[in-house]
Design a protein around this nucleic acid. Structure first.
Lengths: 188, 188
DNA sequence: TTCTGAATAGTCAAGATTGAATATTCGAAA
DNA sequence: TTTCGAATATTCAATCTTGACTATTCAGAA
């Protein structure tokens, strides 16, 4: 349903044809979704059947006709509804990268440290890239700020994981397959 | 591919039948994936065809026979490979909740604030829940710490968004459809 | 013993997603 | 003016996902 909201929202701002729409999303909203081209077309034709968008064949110059999508009133209404749901709901973030973390104890510690450092470096490169993006106007700047803040946090967390791992590696005993059952004795 | 790694990893620790596997993932690894039951079964039978797991019909008491999955050597090898890839790669986090943020300027500010406060509250409830989970041993504790730290960060970010929004609402002029084109005059 | 609900174990058809391919136009170099 | 690569616009077959359902067993209540 979330990609439907996305398409409706973009179309609300201005009517577009499929490719343009997909391109806009890829450029500006990649941090919200991973919608691929064929999925966008699939959703658009479904939304046409549902009467949410209206399709007009448009011909510019002697280019082949393109299907231009425009929001209908039903589409507007659904947009408002989905927007309100999206804003008020919360869905816990899923981290596929944590799968590897969960199985860290299946490889030698030094190898784990080496691989995670590689990951860390990629994160730093990505952060540097994000920080070069000039501030947009409007809500787009919020999205970028979000990504940057989040990435800072992720980098910090990963550094901690690596440090824990190394610490466990330096204790010279009792590590065959439960390498880091560290548990700081603070708190409680 | 990531769910394959997940299944291989769990099966490496101990052989299991489908339901047990799915249940274990749901209980312990929900923060890494959203794999559903039928997908788990689908993947398992595919992995059987690929020779990554070996299936044995097992009969306990007079229960109906169950298919018990065990890792093959090829499965072990693929696990090691996928694990190394997962640990060394980095994939930017996607935030479906940011779709709504991107369209915040399509609704009145007070409504936006109200809806986001609802979201904020759900996040706080979820955080409180995470913090009641007793510390596991081993890498699982890393995953929980990750979720908690991340959620703290998300809450802080959302508070900032709400504050920005309210601030924009208090400027009494020039807001019809570009409600918060705030842009701190610093930097540049 | 019969019933009921919970837990266990799995399946299926319908729908969604995607890598890869197709088809056209444009611009510019050869 | 032919050709080649890039940009535009879309489609398709194959694969993957999922809500909803089925079927069995078990434990305890009636």
């Amino acid at each position: 349903m979330k990609d439907k909201l996305l398409l409706l929202g973009v179309l609300k701002q201005s009517e577009m044809h499929g490719y343009q729409l997909y391109d806009f999303i890829e450029q500006n909203l990649a941090s919200c979704t991973t919608l691929k081209k064929p999925s966008a077309y699939f959703l658009l034709s479904k939304m046409e059947q549902e009467g949410l968008v209206q399709v007009v064949e448009q011909r510019i110059g002697n280019r082949p006709p393109r299907k231009v999508y425009r929001l209908t009133q039903a589409g507007e209404r659904l947009f408002q509804q989905l927007l309100q749901e999206n804003l008020s709901q919360f869905t816990p973030t899923v981290f596929p990268g944590d799968i590897g973390i969960a199985f860290l104890d299946q490889i030698p510690i030094e190898q784990g440290v080496r691989l995670l450092r590689k990951r860390l470096q990629k994160m730093q490169v990505h952060l540097a890239h994000l920080e070069t993006i000039p501030p947009h106007r409007g809500s787009a700047s919020l999205l970028i700020k979000h990504q940057i803040q989040h990435l800072h946090n992720e980098i910090q967390w990963l550094r901690e994981v690596i440090a824990d791992l190394q610490e466990a590696g330096n204790l010279p005993q009792a590590q065959k397959d439960n390498e880091f059952s560290h548990q700081d004795s603070s708190s409680n």
